[in-house]
Amino acid sequence: MEKQSVEQLQKVCTQLRRDVLRMVHAVQSGHPGAPLGCAEFFVALYFDQMTHNPDFQMDGKGEDLFFLSNGHLSAGWYSVLARSGYFPVEELVTFRKLNSRLQGHPATHEHLPGIRIASGSLGQGLSVALGVAQAKKLNNDDKLVYVLMGDGELQEGQVWEAAMYGAHYGVDNIIATVDYNGQQIDGPTEKVMDLKNLKAKWEAFGWEVIETKKGNDMQSVIEGLEKAKSLTGKGKPVLNLLYTEMGYGVDFMVGTHKWHGSPPNDEQLADALSQLPETLGDY
């Protein structure tokens, strides 16, 4: 894929946000908030950072691979996969419908290109990604493994089992990103179950930690991922704390947990879409 300018990438983000809102609205179910907040991250990975092949191979040998641990961001992932050529953009219309490859949460049994493991039940993706990274080392494959987790997801104990493992084995070909939006279904993370000092936690577990303070600014997200990449191969796993705003891009959705798992109605959709111009053509 040709390198695109930040302005071009920003346009892809706008379209991704439109896709997410239209998909969730059409079936009146799904999770719009977090994928709106992670649009820059998804687009930076698939359109700028990763070496990857939309002619999908499950083993992903010789490619950078991405895993979505917080599977409820599926609408955003499906959009970026379709927009980068993994499957026809028109298929987004089947999201969450019967007989679709676009399951509510990502699944492999429908053989949707780009999906290598099911996710949805939280806390499992970091372990999986570490296993993939270990396999890459065994296969002398120097490409990287990326994984995205939610910040609320870090309340799952398995994440910290995996964190310990990654540092113990010096799995330095992985970049784990935390969507640090401070929100979860029942409210702000600090009220539901305070994560306290995440940077210190990951550092104490033996990870190299970088902070991307402006997670909804394309230039910053790219710079953060470049920095993370520069820290790989040095004996430590890398964690990218990505500060985002849930619901970013739509004025009445931003910064609240209320749109974590609620679809917009007709009027709200129209309002939201009016704030996000169609850039690449709707599906």
Binding site: M58, D59, G60, K61, L65, R116, I117, G123, Q124, G125, L126, S127, V128, A129, L130, G131, V132, A133, Q134, A135, K136, L138, N139, D141, G157, Q158, E161, A162, M164, Y165, H168, Y169
Partner: peptide, 26 residues
């Protein structure tokens, strides 16, 4: 030794790692 992974007392992580390893044909 290079094909064996002691995971410590963390069975959930071990299952996830195993699933990941299969993706690289292990």
């Amino acid at each position: 030794p290079e094909r064996f992974f002691q995971t410590g007392i963390s069975e959930a992580n071990m299952i996830g790692l195993s699933a990941g390893l299969t993706i690289g044909d292990k």
